[in-house]
Design a protein around this nucleic acid. Structure first.
Lengths: 367, 367
DNA sequence: AATTGGTTCTGAACCGTTACGGTCACTTCA
DNA sequence: TGAAGTGACCGTAACGGTTCAGAACCAATT
């Protein structure tokens, strides 16, 4: 009588079966294998479900039994919200989302606060696999992911041995950009780069720190630069390289200022991302320096904003990167691991790079 | 002996307990309640776990038992990937992500293909709650979400009765914008709006379709316009309103063209989103029309690109909207449901709205 | 009449964990 | 010396499903 007055525990598959006088199997089949029971009974099951307010099989219980979560996890270096501020990250996300929806899979953004070492979120994530996007190679979250017994694809990471990987050849791409500048005549340059490790160092970077950088992407790009310029006789140790923890235009601006203060005579400012480059350009403009007449500026990524600004940069297929990562993860079939996808990049000759002052005339009268 | 030669089923909490000769409870406590067992035993447990390759408690099993998934689901109208293309949606996502990371909660993007009526993804999502962002009020995915026995917050939706809600007063905001145009002297206007229902109708919209629109946001904005203009004697039924299914600049351009073809004498083109407005402006420019000298254009949302273009529009706090939705969902404590948050908007007087041709002179010599 | 095949439904095992309410040995205190 | 308290650990019962090997039944075939 009064039993339904109280909290009334939510209906379950079992209670539904009891109500109907059938087995749990049958109710389960009503939802998952309609061909396994008579249409008539199925109708009764569904109707009774509606009457009892049974919302259908519990997804978590189902996942436990089937060992499928129907979702992949995404681990980012940054705060979750950062991903929606960086155009390159957004592009990656779009590509990954594309792959996910193709497969009908959910995409779980795992809240991994880089400040705290709290790895619990990685442990709590009910997913069938992970995509790890550009985290430092000593990140505890990455370690936690690799301990999980699920397939993983890393993106913009060094070769981890037996993990699938997606990325570009950052070193070669940056080397090509450097060659371009070198052929324009630049020898005295400054560099602005993103964070190289988990600790904040908004300052110049020693060559040691460059080589020991925990962010594979940044390390490779700097290595590409160093190699190219060293090969034309530039002593890389004397090149000012300013690091910034936060990836913002403001960082690019302040880093540019710092580099110029150290060496006002550089003819080119090489930035390891477009965002930093755009910030640097703003600072240069503020100082009354014309780009590229007075100084050359380059970026990396090929985001839309850079294109609009005519930035000379390296375009990388961020969307394709996300999609490739998703596909790799979801095509888990007959995998000959580890697999690696290296996407190609393209040097974009914008309007922010030109021969250094004075060189133009030389070329006028050249051979 | 040879037992470990074979597939070796992955270690579980139980097998670990057996190996150690302790109860499962104790192993569980080693992970979840370190104070419940001696440090010495805990050390042994963890060490044995490492030795056996036990990755820690299975998240899905844990979720089943604790009735907590540690994630919230996000349901969007569009393909998942679309969310990363629309600046307003990105802002919303950023805000939502912010709220999630504050709470240490994951964010699951649910793949709800609007084309197909496949609601399975909603059923499969292991989440503690849902945020529903701007879907048509008759969307089966929305219905599926509401059937799930988890808290839900809808965003940019009509009042659903007993569901938490976040939004703005679209009608009032658009009414204010209309008043602004009216005060400038505009009486003959055209409208470009986003999709009004789940079916594609890239054409003009009848007043009936406007009123029956399934997208609350669009319906409200059109209602605000209709009300404002009707109050100054404009027969709304004669106003050309062009609808576009896809929310792109290209849509805005083609819709603008369609409206102008219908009535070349309109003095203002009102768009229900900035994206559409930017597309419309591109089309107007292509036709050699100057904005605002020859024609006034307005948008809605207040995205960054609109600001750069000097668009006259209504700015709404998209990030705050996302954050509010997340907070509402996650502060499930002592809730006096249903709760509703209505955020405020701001009329942005850009440089794309001016008095209609000829009116300027009148004002020069005005009273 | 026995065999075969097909459909419909069932029983029991299993997925891996945590919540709950203990037990038990060992202090501590009066 | 007995009562009460404390720390460490355990047993059982869920949590809500899916799955697989049959059972029961009936019609058709041999």
């Amino acid at each position: 009588m009064a039993r339904s007055m109280h909290v009334r525990r939510p209906a379950t598959l079992a209670s539904l079966a009891a109500e109907l006088g059938v087995s749990r199997t049958t109710v389960s089949n009503a939802y998952n294998r309609p061909d396994q029971l008579s249409p008539e009974l199925r109708r009764r099951v569904l109707e009774t479900a509606r009457r009892l307010g049974y919302p259908g099989p519990d997804p978590v219980a189902r996942s436990l039994r089937t060992r499928k979560a129907g979702a992949v996890g995404l681990l980012l270096t940054e705060n979750l919200s950062y991903a929606f501020r960086d155009p390159a990250a957004i592009g990656f996300l779009e590509g990954l989302a594309l792959a996910c929806e193709d497969a009908g899979t959910g995409l779980l953004l795992v809240p991994a606060n880089p400040e705290r070492e709290d790895v619990a979120a990685v442990h709590r994530a009910g997913v069938d696999g992970f995509v790890v996007y550009s985290v430092p190679d000593d990140d505890p979250h990455l370690a936690a992911v690799l301990e999980r017994p699920v397939p993983t694809v890393v993106c913009d990471q060094p070769d981890l041995g037996n993990v699938d990987r997606v990325g570009i050849d950052d070193q070669a791409a940056m080397h090509a950009l450097a060659q371009h500048l070198i052929s324009l005549g630049h020898r005295r340059v400054g560099v602005v780069c993103m964070r190289l490790a988990r600790d904040r160092n908004d300052d110049f970077v020693t060559p040691e720190r460059q080589q020991a950088a925990h962010f594979h992407v940044q390390r490779s790009r700097l290595a590409g630069l160093a190699q190219a310029f060293a090969s034309v006789g530039v002593d890389w140790a004397t090149v000012p390289v300013a690091e910034r923890f936060d990836h913002t235009m403001a960082s690019g601006a302040s880093a540019a200022a710092q580099v110029l203060e150290r060496d006002p005579h550089i003819t080119a400012l090489i930035c390891t991302s477009d965002i930093l480059a755009l910030g640097a350009m703003a600072e240069l403009q503020r100082r009354g320096l014309r780009v590229p007449a007075d100084i050359t500026v380059t970026g990396f990524d090929g985001i839309r904003e850079a294109e609009q600004a005519g930035l000379t940069t390296v375009r990388q297929p961020v969307l394709e990167k996300g999609r490739a990562a998703g596909k790799l993860l979801l095509d888990s079939a007959e995998r000959t691991r580890p697999r690696a996808v290296t996407l190609s990049t393209e040097l974009v000759e914008g309007t922010t790079a030109a021969p250094p002052r004075g060189t133009a005339e030389e070329r006028w009268f050249g051979p």
